[in-house]
Design a protein around this nucleic acid. Structure first.
Lengths: 204, 204
DNA sequence: AACAAGACAGACCGATCGTTCTACTTAACC
DNA sequence: GGTTAAGTAGAACGATCGGTCTGTCTTGTT
């Protein structure tokens, strides 16, 4: 059964390991999930684990790398299907809302990881900082392209609101948080709503 | 040295234990801090620990109880020194900002605890839910008293923004988050700013 | 056919986890 | 002044932590 590879060239065991660990880390927390749990649920052996990742922390970093890649992918996908910058901003806000309601119901993987890794400058924290810097920068240029009066401040507000949406969706339930998020986000992005537009955006 | 009590009637060792644990839990995380660490830094013995708290989780609950009491105390204090509801709203927003910049620089104790306790309905999660319900309800009645057009939605936005401010202050630095928070919060509360007021609120 | 590499199987390491226990001392209350 | 509760000191519990090691087997490449 050795050297089995997926079509992308990666090892099958490694992919199962990473997928299982990602799921467990997100749902139950990083420190709370031991290596024994991971290898048992992934159906691999200890040796295979340490062949692909020198330590558990390397696996954690890979987990955050996957999350980062997923979000960046969603952004470029949205960018491909939207023409006008203002339309893309709408897509981003709705995409965020959809993501929180469907996939990220246990909060933000990066915020959660940061809670468990208080040491500033550690490898995990650097990954988190990198992700957040990319997100903020992307929003800034997007808002600048949409002729926002103050892109830096508006991007700051949208970052704020995304964090809040993920945390609030986890702790208070998304249906309760959604209206406040949509209202605040569209206002922050300078996409004021009138009439039919407002109904469409706020409704389910 | 037994039965030493503070003027409030509580045990000295217990207070030292709770204070030390609170500090460690907040700064380094709950699962990351072991009982050995706590008793060593508090300067007490294992037996004393388990005399006052049946288990570590009871200590965690007490820690959240202290945080909850502190915040409620700050609220009633602010309520005592403000006359008009709109003035009190301003005080609350500024108090929140001050708290994030001075004391809660490692995020929100409740959010952080929730990250480490994924099990819905557990005692810790119940405490968190209770605190959040109180906070939301307090804001709602405060906004209603200030004649806000939609107190429920506005309170929802302010809850969102407090969560975001604490997370953002931790991960991005408060100086970067502050302007966005002040702007979004005053707008959400319906306290639009003009001229000198705006300068005063946004400035350091 | 030979070899290298990836995966399996499982024992084993020291350290730490949260918790329980016994034994002794000190201070406060009746 | 004796009882009792609250403190100190420290050994010990089983379980789990992350990590290492020695093998064997299978597969793909050459």
């Amino acid at each position: 059964m050795a050297r089995r590879k997926t079509d992308t060239g990666a090892s099958l065991a490694r992919e199962r390991l990473l997928a299982t660990a990602s799921d467990l880390f997100y749902r139950e927390g990083i420190h709370a999930v031991g290596v024994d749990r991971i290898i048992a649920e992934a159906g691999i052996t200890r040796a295979t684990f340490y062949r692909h990742f020198p330590s558990k922390e390397d696996l954690v970093e890979a987990y955050l790398g996957v999350e980062d890649a997923n979000i960046r992918g969603a952004f470029t996908a949205a960018g491909g299907m939207a023409g006008e910058p203002r339309e893309l901003l709408h897509l981003v806000i709705e995409g965020l809302a959809d993501d929180v309601s469907r996939h990220h119901t246990r909060g933000c993987p990066f915020i959660n990881a940061a809670v468990e890794y208080p040491e500033e400058g550690s490898a995990v924290r650097e990954r988190i900082a990198g992700h957040r810097a990319w997100f903020r920068g992307t929003l800034e240029s997007l808002l600048a392209a949409a002729d926002a009066p103050d892109p830096v401040r508006a991007a700051g507000e949208l970052v704020l609101l995304r964090d809040a949406a993920m945390v609030g969706g986890y702790l208070d339930g998304w249906e309760r948080v959604r209206p406040a998020f949509i209202a605040a986000a569209t206002r922050a992005a300078g996409l004021e709503l009138v009439g039919a537009d407002a109904d469409r955006a706020v409704g389910t």
